[in-house]
Simulated assay, not measured.
Amino acid sequence: MTEHAALVHGEAVARERVDALLAAVPVRDRETRPESLARAARQRRRWATQVVVTDELARRACAERGLAPPDEVSPSRVLAVAATDVADLGSIVAAALAHSPAARALLADLEGEQDVPEEAVRDYYDRNRDCFLTREALRRGVDPYGGATAGDFLPYEHVRAGIASELRRAAAQRAFFDWLDRARTGVVYAAGHEHPGDPSHPDHEHRH
Rank of each mutant, 00 (worst) to 15 (best):
S100G: 00
T134S: 08
S100L: 04
R139E: 14
L89D: 04
P70G: 05
E113Y: 09
A137G: 02
V78E: 12
E111Y: 10
A94V: 03
R140H: 14
C131A: 03
A102S: 10
S91N: 12
G66C: 15
H99A: 05
R59M: 07
P70E: 08
H99I: 02
P117L: 14
T134V: 01
L138S: 10
A137M: 01
A58D: 01
H99N: 14
E72D: 00
R104W: 11
E72N: 06
L106S: 05
L89N: 06
E119I: 00
D130A: 12
Q114P: 03
G112C: 11
S91C: 06
A98W: 09
R139L: 12
A120F: 08
A105P: 09
L138N: 07
V93W: 11
P69E: 13
L79G: 02
R129D: 08
G112D: 08
Y124T: 02
L89H: 00
D71P: 09
S76G: 14
R127E: 06
L67V: 03
F132L: 06
E111P: 13
V93E: 12
A98Y: 09
D88R: 08
L138C: 13
A96W: 08
A108I: 01
A63K: 14
A137F: 10
F132E: 08
D126G: 03
D130P: 00
E64P: 09
R60K: 02
L79R: 07
S74Y: 09
A98D: 13
G66R: 14
E64W: 13
L57M: 11
V121H: 05
D88K: 11
E136M: 02
A108S: 03
P101Q: 10
A80L: 14
R77I: 13
P117M: 15
R65L: 12
V116T: 12
C62E: 10
V73G: 05
A105T: 04
L133T: 00
R77P: 06
P69N: 10
A96Y: 08
R65Y: 09
V73E: 11
R65Q: 06
R135S: 14
E72L: 03
D123F: 10
E119C: 00
A120L: 04
D71A: 15
S100A: 03
D71S: 15
S76F: 15
A82F: 09
A103V: 11
E111A: 14
V73N: 04
I92W: 11
L138V: 08
A68N: 00
E119K: 01
A102E: 15
R127W: 04
E64Q: 12
R139S: 11
C131L: 05
A108L: 05
L107A: 07
D109N: 04
A68I: 00
E111Q: 12
Y124Q: 07
V78R: 15
R59D: 13
D123T: 01
C62G: 04
V86F: 01
L57R: 06
V73R: 10
D88V: 10
A82W: 10
H99S: 03
P70T: 02
L97N: 00
R104E: 09
R122F: 08
R135W: 15
S74T: 02
G66V: 13
S91Q: 15
G90W: 09
A82S: 10
R104S: 06
A108T: 02
E136D: 07
R60A: 06
L57F: 13
V86C: 00
A94Q: 12
A108F: 03
Q114T: 04
A120V: 02
A87Q: 13
